[in-house]
C-alpha cells in the first residue's frame, strides 16, 4: 500500500516537473503582453511600430521604434549573408571532406565556438573588429557592417551543427549513386547530397536568424547604437535588443513601458521564427 502511494506521489511530481516549462511559457507570455500592450495602445500601435523618431526624454516624448526594427533586420540580414555561406561550406567540410584524424579536434572546436559567452564576442568585436573596420573603410568603426561580421561569426556554430547533421542524415546511397554515374566527389556532395539535405539546412538557417535577432550584448558593443535610420552599412544602428538594455536602467513611466513593448515586438519576431523552425523540422521527418 505504502509503495503504491509512493509510486503515485512521484508520478505526480514528475508530471508537475514536465508541466513547469509550459507554465514558464504561459507566464512569460502573460507578463510580457500584459505589460507591453497597454503602452503600445497609449502611444498608438502605428506610431509605435512605424514612428521614425525615438526621443523618449523629450517634451513631448516620441516613441517610434521603426529605426530599431530596421536595425535589427539589417544586422540579421548581414549576419546571414556572412555566416550562412561560410557555415554551410564548413558543414560540408565536416561531413564530407574532413579526415577522421582532423575531425576529432575540430568537432569540439565548433562546440567551443558556441560556448564562448556573447560578452566575450562583444569585447573581441570592440577591440579588434571596430578598429579594423574604421581603418579599412575610413569610417566610424561601430557600424552595421561590424555588427554583421560579429553576428555572422556567432551564428556559425548553430548553422554548422544543424547543417552537418542534416547532410549526414542523407542516405549514403545518394552519394554512391552519383559517383557511379560519373560525378566527382565534389559534384556528388553539392548537387546530390546538399539538395537532399535542403530542409535541414534551412532549419539551421532559421535557427541562426533567431540567434542573430535576439543577440544583445555583443551587438550593442559594436553597432554604434544611434537610434535613427542608417544611410549606409558603414553607419551605426541600434537594434531592438540594444534599445532595451541601454535604456532600461534609467527609464521610468511610459518610457519604461515602451521598452517592454519593444521586447514584445522582439518576442513576436522570435515566435514567428520558432514557428518556421518547427514547421521545417516537421518537414524534415
Amino acid at each position: 500500500m505504502k509503495q503504491r502511494v509512493l509510486e503515485l506521489v512521484f508520478r505526480i511530481l514528475f508530471l508537475i516537473a514536465a508541466l513547469a516549462s509550459i507554465l514558464a511559457v504561459i507566464l512569460i507570455c502573460i507578463f510580457l503582453f500584459a505589460n507591453g500592450f497597454p503602452p503600445m495602445a497609449e502611444i498608438g500601435v502605428f506610431d509605435f511600430l512605424f514612428g521614425m523618431d525615438w526621443s523618449p526624454v523629450d517634451v513631448p516624448p516620441s516613441f517610434g521604434i521603426f529605426p530599431m526594427i530596421v536595425g535589427s533586420l539589417y544586422v540579421t540580414a548581414g549576419a546571414i549573408i556572412i555566416g550562412v555561406p561560410i557555415g554551410i561550406l564548413t558543414a560540408v567540410f565536416m561531413a564530407k571532406f574532413c579526415p577522421k584524424r582532423l575531425y576529432r579536434p575540430l568537432k569540439p572546436a565548433v562546440e567551443l565556438l558556441a560556448g564562448i559567452p556573447s560578452i566575450v564576442y562583444g569585447f573581441f568585436g570592440m577591440v579588434v573588429l571596430v578598429p579594423l573596420v574604421r581603418e579599412l573603410f575610413d569610417s566610424k568603426g561601430a557600424s552595421i557592417l561590424t555588427a554583421s561580421i560579429l553576428l555572422g561569426i556567432m551564428i556559425l556554430p548553430t548553422i554548422i551543427g544543424v547543417s552537418e547533421s542534416a547532410i549526414r542524415a542523407v542516405p549514403n546511397s545518394y552519394y554512391e549513386g552519383a559517383l557511379a554515374l560519373g560525378a566527382s566527389h565534389e559534384r556528388s556532395v553539392f548537387f546530390v547530397m546538399l539538395p537532399a539535405a535542403k530542409s535541414g539546412i534551412m532549419a539551421g538557417i532559421v535557427l541562426g536568424i533567431g540567434r542573430a535577432i535576439g543577440e544583445t550584448m555583443a551587438v550593442m558593443m559594436v553597432a554604434g547604437n544611434q537610434a535613427r535610420m542608417p544611410d549606409s552599412i558603414l553607419e551605426g544602428v541600434r537594434t531592438l535588443t540594444a534599445n532595451i538594455v541601454m535604456e532600461m536602467g534609467y527609464a521610468a513611466d511610459l518610457h519604461r513601458e515602451a521598452l517592454i513593448a519593444t521586447a514584445v515586438v522582439l518576442f513576436v519576431f522570435i515566435l514567428i521564427i520558432n514557428l518556421c523552425f518547427s514547421l521545417l523540422k516537421r518537414r524534415m521527418k
Binding site: S21, A24, I28, L32, G214, T216, M248, A263, L266
Partner: peptide, 15 residues
C-alpha cells in the same frame, strides 16, 4: 513549450 523556451533571447528572459 521547451522548443519555444530554447528560442527565447536572453534579454526577453531578463525583462
Amino acid at each position: 513549450a521547451a522548443e519555444t523556451l530554447s528560442g527565447v533571447p536572453s534579454i526577453v528572459y531578463g525583462l
